[in-house]
């Protein structure tokens, strides 16, 4: 159990090369939107997601991801997301309320869910 906890902690900070203080890791935000761009790049990949807010306006969210070599182990390809894809993204929101989040998972219109963990890896700790 102790080993598992250490592993979870390790995964939790996996492949961030800088401070992640700006994200509220205790919270999850669920975003239903359209992929504007999916960038497959070192040192971090990211998703630009267009989301219609409560007032009917379209906001562009930046979803910060880990490095592609980690995503490959989790089953990703550079073609996993394309502009125009309708997706649901879960992420840890920015503490400031700005439209940005740290990636947790994405579910495609076809119902496929991708995270940044290899298949079979322990699920991330539930957000409080």
């Amino acid at each position: 159990m102790k080993k598992l906890l250490i592993a979870l902690c390790t995964i939790g900070i996996a492949y961030a090369h800088h401070s992640m203080e700006g994200f509220d890791r205790a919270k999850n935000v669920t975003l239903v939107g359209t992929v504007k761009q999916f960038k497959w790049a070192n040192p971090h990949s990211w998703i630009e997601l267009e989301v219609t807010n409560d007032k009917g306006a379209v906001e562009t969210w930046n979803i910060e991801m880990t490095a592609p070599f980690v995503l490959v182990k989790a089953g990703w390809k550079s073609t996993s997301l394309k502009p125009g894809d309708k997706v649901t993204v879960v992420g840890h929101p920015q503490k400031t309320g700005e439209p940005g989040a740290l990636f947790v998972s994405v579910t495609t219109a076809e119902g496929q869910t991708l995270t940044d963990r290899p298949p079979g890896a322990p699920a991330p700790p539930a957000a409080k």
């Binding site: 961030a16 960038k39 790049a41 070192n42 040192p43 990211w46 930046n62 910060e64 920015q94 940005g100």
Partner: peptide, 26 residues
């Protein structure tokens, strides 16, 4: 079982990273 790859920190990539673009948390 691994090799290093090219990894460049670039302004246009950083522009999409909330962790480094947020003006109120940095």
């Amino acid at each position: 079982d691994t090799d290093i790859t090219e990894a460049s920190c670039l302004p246009d990539l950083n522009a999409h990273m909330p962790s480094v673009t947020s003006t109120t948390t940095n």
